Computed example of a mutant assay.
Amino acid sequence: MKPSADALEIIACAILILVSIVGNTCLFYSTSKCITGGLQTSFLLLISLVFVHLIKNLVVNILKIVYSSGILLDSVGCKVLHFTAALTTSLAIWFMLHFALLYLRKLYQIVYPLSGAASLSEQKYSLKGIAALWVAGVAVYIPVLIYTRKPEHHQHSENDTGSLSTNRIYMECLTGFGNEQVELYYGKIFLVLIDILPLVILVFVCFWMALLLLEKKKMTYGDIWIGDDDSETEVLRGAKFSILLMLLITPLWVSHFILVYFLKDLAAYTFIPAVLTALSSGFSALSPFLLMLVNYKVKLVSFCGVKQEKSTPQPADVILSPYA
C-alpha cells in the first residue's frame, strides 16, 4: 500500500526531531564545557543556534505532526506555525553569517597578523549584535504573527482529496495583510530579501575565507613550516566548517523557496510535504554535528581545545628536537 502524503510528512518530522535533539543536545553540552571564563562570541553564537534549531523542530515540526495526524489547527496554531517557521529560518541564516564573519576576521588576522587583535570593545559589540538579531527577528515577523489566520470558510469539505492534503497546510493557514501594496512590498519582497541578502553575503564571505585558507596553506616562516597551535587550529577548522555549512544552508533554502513558489504545480505529488519538511529543517538537524567538530581536537579528544598533560615519561636517551 502506497503511504499517504501525511504519513510521509509525519515520518520525516519524527526523524528530523530525533536527529536535531541528539545533535543540538550534544552541541550544547560540548559548548557549555568550554565556558570557563567570560562568554565569548563564538560560544554565544553556538548556544543561539542550538535554541533556534530546537525551537524549529520542537514547535514547527511537532505542529506539522499534529496537523498531519488529522487534528485541525485553529487560528492560534496557524499563527505559531508560520511565525516560528519564518523566524527560526531567518535567525539560522543571520547567526550563520555572524559565525562566518567571526571566523573570517580571525583567519584574516592569522594570515595578516599586523592587522591587530580583537579588542574588548569589539567583543562587547559582537555580543550586543547577537542580542540585536534576536530582537530584530521577532520585530520583523510580528506582522506575520498578527495577520496569519485560518479562514472560517476553508474547512474540510466532502470534495477534499488526497492530493489537496499535500498543500492544505499552506491553504488553510493564510497570511493576508489586507492591502495589496503591503502584500507586495512586505510579504513578497522584504521577507525574501532579509533571507536572500544574508545568504548572498554568506557565500561571498565563505569564498573570501577559501582564498585566505589557500594563502595560509602557502605560508612559511623563513622557509621553515611551523605547525599551528590550538588557537590557529580552531580558527582554521571554524573557517573550513563555515564553508561546509554555507554549502548546506544555501541549497536547502533556495530549494525550499522554489518548491513553495511552484507548490501549486507540484501539489499532486505525495512526497512534497516530506521534502519541504526536510528542506526547511535539514539544516537544524545536520549542522550541530558539523559545528561540534569546530573545536574538537582529534589528538586530544577534547571539545574545548584545552591540552591535557600526558603522563608518559620520556626516555632518558631521547634527544628532543627544538621544533618538537
Rank of each mutant, 00 (worst) to 15 (best):
L212A: 14
G176L: 15
M219F: 08
V235Q: 00
V192I: 03
L247N: 14
L244P: 04
K240L: 01
I201M: 08
N159K: 14
K218G: 03
S231F: 09
L197V: 15
K240C: 00
I201L: 15
D223F: 07
A210D: 03
S157P: 09
I169R: 06
M219I: 06
L214R: 05
Y185L: 13
S255Y: 13
I258Y: 04
K264F: 13
P198D: 05
L213I: 00
S165V: 10
F257I: 04
L245G: 05
H153F: 14
Y186P: 02
D228K: 12
I224W: 08
Y261R: 03
S255W: 10
T250V: 09
L199Q: 09
P251L: 05
L197A: 14
L245R: 01
V203I: 15
L193S: 03
W134Q: 07
P251H: 00
K218H: 11
Y147D: 00
T148I: 06
H156Y: 06
F262K: 07
Q155K: 11
A131G: 14
T250K: 03
L236E: 00
I169Y: 08
E232S: 03
H154Y: 08
Q181K: 01
T148S: 13
A131L: 11
I142A: 00
N159F: 15
P198R: 14
I201P: 15
S157M: 06
S157T: 12
K188I: 09
H154W: 14
I249V: 14
I258Q: 02
D229E: 08
Q181N: 09
L252V: 11
E232G: 06
I142V: 13
E215N: 03
S231C: 11
G137W: 12
D160T: 11
I189V: 06
L133Q: 07
P198T: 11
G178H: 03
Q155E: 08
T233S: 02
Y141P: 01
T250H: 05
L244V: 04
R168I: 12
L248I: 12
D223T: 03
H153A: 13
K240N: 02
K218S: 15
I142Q: 02
L259F: 03
H153P: 06
T233V: 00
A136G: 01
K150M: 07
C173W: 13
